[in-house]
């Protein structure tokens, strides 16, 4: 287990550490069972609505915390109507947690090294100190409902335990 998952209620072990992720390319060839999608941050999400009902989670990588493509991608995917779980993965820092949540991510996957250097408290304080956003004030709260809180990620439902095949 090399990753920590950050959610609004703190650090968690990664229930999906054994899961197999599907690429967009594979997804486009067709799937028969729900999958976990790994979307590169330079891939076009426009075709995703076709497959929404097949997606258990979408994971978007952050190769570097200064590379903000993932934020726009998450926002674009939400605008396309995706209501499932969105995960940011890689080099995000605690100070970006609020931006990640506001852009549409539900959770962030970070390495254990970073988690040690920036412990739980530093992530959670981002929400505690949240004065609200200018964007919500201007546009009203976004109509995007938060994903059901990691319900489909509970260990007993997780694909690894269910022996979930991939395509």
């Amino acid at each position: 287990m090399n990753s920590i998952i950050v959610r609004d209620d703190g650090f968690h072990e990664d229930e999906l550490s054994e899961a197999v992720f599907t690429s967009l390319e594979t997804l486009k060839t067709g799937v028969e069972v729900p999958v976990y999608l790994h979307l590169e941050n330079d891939e076009d999400p426009a075709c995703l609505p076709l497959y929404f009902c097949w997606l258990r989670l979408i994971r978007i990588p952050f190769p570097d915390f200064a590379d903000g493509r993932g934020f726009s991608l998450a926002s674009a995917i939400r605008r396309l109507g995706y209501q499932g779980c969105l995960r940011a993965r890689g080099h995000l820092i605690a100070d970006q947690y609020r931006q990640a949540r506001q852009s549409g991510f539900d959770e962030v996957e970070i390495g254990k090294g970073l988690a040690a250097r920036q412990p739980e408290r530093q992530w959670l304080v981002q929400l505690a100190n949240n004065p609200g956003s200018y964007q919500d004030r201007l546009f009203g709260k976004r109509p995007v409902p938060a994903a059901p809180k990691s319900g489909h990620l509970r260990p007993e439902l997780s694909p690894s335990s269910a022996g979930m095949p991939t395509v």
Binding site: F65, F71, A100, Y134
Partner: peptide, 16 residues
Amino acid sequence: ELLRQWSTDHPEFQYL
């Protein structure tokens, strides 16, 4: 001023 408010801390556009 409208643009100032809209762009301030815009979650999507902090790491352009």
